[in-house]
């Protein structure tokens, strides 16, 4: 399972790099609405994925490695999806990077990504600690996303 996930990760990191979605300048052009490339890339990716996963589900496919029936849950929007995404969007705009590009930048030897990485690690640590303080009795939730 880990080997399969790593393999898809390699493809994903390579494609982000090739599409220059790891370049802070390209991301800035996207966010300043100067260049539609990354929107079209993301949008066409969503369309293809959307069609593909539905075909898998309709065919009652089983995952090749885990043998599980291909299925997924959907979530109803909550306040946290808005609040968290507003924070995330602000950080994205300032750094012109988000988790996928940060990981690929690390591989590309972009030294600045070490700073963004440090921040992401601190932010995740703060979140986990806040959650555990809010519900001290609950077991650590299986984090998603």
């Amino acid at each position: 399972m880990r080997r399969a996930a790593a393999l898809v990760g390699v493809a994903f990191g390579f494609l982000l790099s090739w599409g220059q979605a790891t370049s802070p300048d390209r991301i800035r052009e996207m966010l300043l609405l100067e260049d539609p490339y990354l929107y079209l890339m993301l949008g066409s990716g969503v369309l293809v994925a959307s069609a593909g996963v539905r075909l898998l589900r309709r065919a009652r496919a089983h995952a090749l490695v885990t043998g599980e029936p291909v299925a997924w849950e959907t979530l109803r929007p909550e306040r946290r999806h808005v609040v968290g995404s507003v924070m995330f969007g602000a950080g994205w705009a300032v750094s012109d990077a988000c988790p996928g590009p940060i990981a690929a930048q690390l591989g590309q030897g972009v030294a600045w990504s070490l700073f963004t990485l440090a921040g992401v690690v601190i932010g995740i640590g703060l979140y986990l600690r806040t959650q555990e303080r809010a519900q001290p009795a609950a077991a650590p939730s299986p984090a998603r996303g």
């Binding site: 921040g119 992401v120 932010g123």
Partner: peptide
Amino acid sequence: GAGVLIGFGAKTAG
């Protein structure tokens, strides 16, 4: 600082 917002915010939003 931007990374902290990304990490905390995106975890909050799942």
